[in-house]
Simulated scan of single mutants.
Amino acid sequence: MLFVLLVQAAVQLTIRAQGNLTSYGKASQSTLFGGSNPQGAILPPITNNYTVASCSTTNTAGAPKNAWWRFQFSFEFTFITEITIYYRKNYDYRMDGFKLYVTNTTTIPPVGYLCYEDSDPGLPNITQNIPCNQLGKYVIYYDDKGDVETNTGPVVELCYVEIIGCEKGMWETNCSESCSSVCIDQHCHPGNGSCVWGCDEQQCLNKKWDKQTGVCTEGCVNETSRICNCTNCTSVF
């Protein structure tokens, strides 16, 4: 039983090793409905219950072709591992067909990594936990479908958004540790510190390494590296 508890604790530590990054940046959206504010989606309460003041709501008037909510990080680049969305209660039909992107530009329609697209039959769950594992500057919630039954154009009604990850180059609890210098571009996974793109060949003796395994074939420049050494130098993805 003690072993099981220790394993569970270790798993929880790995999951919680990153932080919610929504306090490090600012939100914007395509239009504003009433007294709505895009920042409402990143401030408590954590709930699907709707008020104009506490949720991000775009305008329903004017038959818009698309609607979007965007978060811009204050860091140059951020590694996002997962995003949790709380949409407005009882309005799942307005969420139908949404897309979630991580991008490096503000272009609309978004041009970047598509973390998720709602394409399943039926209406989506109003609470979504979406894995992403992507490096970028922006998170964009995007909708260009609208609701055909009520003849309503695309609308965004986000009551809370949590973005989990770390600034590029950081990992561990609350992103408190720097990634190993032997990682290519000092880029590592926020949860465990392993090199995402493999090891920098400059850290291998004579710059010799196996591109398939990431192993330094003639040894490492720094044998004492905690994260990326001669036998642990592979890409996470």
Rank of each mutant, 00 (worst) to 15 (best):
C159Y: 09
K207R: 13
V196L: 09
C175T: 00
C179W: 07
M170F: 00
I42F: 11
D143I: 10
N232L: 11
T81F: 08
V161E: 09
T84W: 12
D143N: 12
R16C: 02
L100G: 00
I164E: 05
T127Q: 11
C188N: 09
T173N: 12
S225H: 07
S225K: 04
P110H: 12
T231V: 05
P121Q: 10
D118Q: 02
Y116W: 05
T152P: 04
Q134W: 03
T47A: 13
K99W: 00
K26W: 09
A67K: 07
D96K: 07
I85F: 13
I85L: 15
F79C: 00
K211V: 06
G35Y: 07
T224P: 02
Y50S: 13
N229P: 08
N104W: 10
L13K: 04
H189Y: 03
Y116N: 00
Y138R: 12
K145M: 13
V221P: 04
E177Y: 00
L114N: 11
M95C: 08
A63S: 12
S180G: 14
A61R: 15
T217F: 01
T224I: 08
W171Y: 15
G35K: 13
T60M: 14
G40H: 00
P44S: 06
Y86H: 12
Y24R: 09
C230M: 10
I42R: 07
Q186E: 15
I15D: 01
D147R: 00
S180M: 13
R16T: 08
K211C: 03
V236Q: 03
N222A: 07
V52L: 06
E167H: 11
S194A: 12
G122A: 10
Y138Q: 02
C216W: 04
W68S: 01
D92L: 12
N104G: 13
K211E: 11
V7M: 06
N125G: 06
N37L: 10
T217P: 10
L5N: 12
D144V: 00
G191L: 09
V196P: 10
N192D: 15
A67P: 12
T150W: 00
G35S: 14
Q29H: 10
N20D: 04
T14D: 04
T127W: 09
I46P: 11
I227L: 12
V7P: 04
C55N: 06
F73P: 02
S28D: 10
G35P: 04
